[in-house]
Each structure stands twice: as C-alpha cells, then as structure tokens.
Design a protein around this nucleic acid. Structure first.
Length: 345
DNA sequence: AAAACGGGGAT
DNA sequence: ATCCCAGTTTT
C-alpha cells in the first residue's frame, strides 16, 4: 500500500494500468468498438445497448441487441415506429418502461434535435429514459468526452479500491467523487468500458479474483476480506405474495383473447392475457366457470405472483379485448404471459 | 428517501 | 433459495 504522499500518483497510474489491461483483454461485444485511441461508437447504438443493459445482464442483451438494431436500424427508424412495434421488440426483456422511454427519446432526438444526438451530458440527461449513468456512458463512449460513469460495477470497484466502508446508498456521493479522481486524462470511452469489464471478470461481486487483478497495487482491499464484502449493501426487502387468474381463451378463428394493458403499473402498455387478482384488477366476469388448466409462479423484484391458468372457448371477442394468434402472443407478450400460455395450451 | 419496475444467469 | 445485474422514474 502506498503512503499518503503517493496517493496522487497512484490515482494516475490506476487508470493508465486499467486501460493497458483493457487493451489486452477487452471482451468483444456486439455493441462495442474494440479499444484504441480516439475510438467512438455510434450514439444510437450506445443508447440502445446501455438502455438494454440497465439492470439486465450482458448475456441476456447479447441475444437481443442484434435483432432490435435490425428492426430499428437508426434513430429515425425507431422514432417513426409505432409504440406497439417497439414494445413487441422489447417483450421478454423486462422493465418495459425502458422501451417506452427509448421510443420517446428517439422521437425527441428526431424532432427536437433534428435527428442528431446532442453531444453534451446535460442535454442527454434531459431526454426520456436517460439518467445520470446513461448520459455519462453516451458522452464518453460515443463522443469521447470526459464523463464520470458510475454503475454498480464502478461502485463496487471504487468502494474496494478506496476501501469505502460506509453502506450504500449513503456512500454514493463519496464513491462518485473518488471515481472522478481515478479518471484518466483521455480515452474516456475505453476507460468506462474497461471498468465494466474489470467489474464483470475480475472485481466480481462475490468472488473477486485479486490474484489476477491488474490494478491490485492501487487497491486498498486487495487480497483481504474487504475485497469480498465491499461495498456494503442495504438489507433486502421481502416480496409481497399475490395470487391471481389468467385465461387462455380460444376464439373460433383459433386465435386467443388478449388485451392491451393499462399505461401504468405492471407490464404497462404491453400485450397481456385476460385475468386479474394479481395486479389489483378484478377478474372479468366472462372468465368465470372456465376450466383450471395449470399454474404459474413468477417472481419479480417486489412481487411474487402465483397464477392459476384457466382455459376455455368463446364464440366472439369480448368487448375491450383483441384477438391475436398464439404465435403473435408468444412474440410480443412479457414472459409471465408466455409462461401462462405454455401452461394453458 | 423509498418504492415501483422483469427476467435470467450464477452460485 | 439467494444474489446480482452497464438504472430510471415516480411517489
């Protein structure tokens, strides 16, 4: 460990060393430009990937990014798409507000900014769905400008490197300040992505690999128990258990009955199956008396859903609902409904 | 400041 | 089972 008088020097060497490691071992990812001086990525691609990656693993996004970009190749294409199409392309990814914000963001870029992404953090931050993290990511990765990118990887790395023992979320301000001190003087985009790779492959949440860590000489927790336990996180809340009913109801055409969900709440704006009880809405009376066909358990961050799946036939479409093919439902409904569909057919 | 908001992969 | 994830918005 360096003496206090040498910390300033360590701060410079940290970023330099991490960038050097990144040049050798950057992961290749579909949305990423390989490391190099002055490299930039298309801001539209950064927006899509960063939005998809919010609270979502790289493994999941890997399988969805390409198809989305193919469907909506440019910010103009996304802006001119119908919301229904955007939501369908997002089905299964979760946190569906992201898709609606993304669509609103594309419209704003197209209409307010003439189809050109604003190149400064402050303007980006004003766009729908772009918070502090995403604004900093676009600023650095797409525009090569200085921005302090702080996500959970960075929080973890900085808390360990600086041995910050104050629990989250109170430690956030301190962590952001320390993160800024550790920054390099150029290659801001590569540096942001180097931190991500380091957090994902070396400075992992549970089993950090300090023996392989390139910045071990600059880390106050390296090889100690602190490297495993920091940052200190707040205790988890227990999930509320809720029960409900969902119907897989067939029409004479072979299609099934579906609904457009309300604009707020769970799965807002998405295509869903008729039912209720689990989302604060009544089970529609026309579903009564249908045959029980299965059960689905679905766990969300703040709810645990226990759904009874019923099946039946109706001769015509009930008012307020719409007919969709089973294939269409599978492709555009959130996972919960697709699971119910599988259990009810 | 706390709650709402999905889903899947790793352990 | 539990933890965690390239967070943002609303309450």
């Amino acid at each position: 460990m360096a003496k206090a008088s040498e910390l300033g020097k360590d701060e410079e060497r940290f970023a330099e060393t991490l960038l050097s490691w990144y040049d050798r071992s950057a992961r290749r990812l579909p949305w990423r430009v390989p490391p190099g001086e002055g490299v930039r990525q298309d801001p539209y691609l950064v927006l899509i990937s960063e939005t998809m990656l919010q609270q979502t693993t790289v493994a999941t996004v890997k399988g969805r990014f390409g198809a989305f970009i193919e469907t909506f190749p440019s910010v103009e294409a996304l802006a001119s798409a119908k919301e229904e199409e955007v939501l369908a392309a997002w089905a299964g990814l979760g946190y569906y507000r992201r898709a609606r914000s993304l669509h609103a963001c594309a419209k704003a870029v197209a209409e307010v900014h003439g189809g050109v992404f604003p190149a400064d953090e402050g303007s980006l931050r004003k766009l729908p769905g772009i918070g502090a993290y995403t604004a900093a990511a676009i600023t650095s990765i797409a525009f090569g400008q200085r921005a302090v990118v702080v996500d959970t990887n960075v929080e973890r790395i900085v808390a360990r490197v600086r041995r910050i023992t104050e629990p989250l979320p109170k430690a956030r301000k301190l962590i952001a300040g320390e993160a800024e001190k550790l920054m390099p003087e150029d290659r801001y985009g590569d540096y942001a992505q180097a931190l991500m790779d380091h957090g994902a492959t070396i400075c992992r949440p549970k089993a950090p690999d300090c023996l392989l860590c390139p910045v071990r000489p600059f880390c106050a927790s390296a090889g100690t128990e602190d490297a495993v336990r920091l940052p200190i996180k707040p205790p988890k809340k227990t999930r509320k258990q809720v029960e409900g009913v969902m119907g897989v109801v067939t029409l004479p055409s072979g299609e099934i009955v579906a609904e457009d969900r309300p604009g707020k709440g769970l799965f807002a704006g998405m295509l869903g199956l008729p039912g209720g009880g689990w989302d604060g809405r009544e089970v529609p009376s026309w579903l009564e008396g249908f045959e029980e066909a299965g059960a689905v358990r679905h766990v969300l961050t703040h709810r645990e859903l226990n759904i009874t799946v019923i099946t039946g036939k109706v001769s015509e479409l009930p008012a307020g609902y719409r007919a969709v093919s089973v294939e269409g439902a599978r492709n555009s409904m959130p996972t919960l409904f697709v699971k119910a569909l599988g259990s009810g057919i």
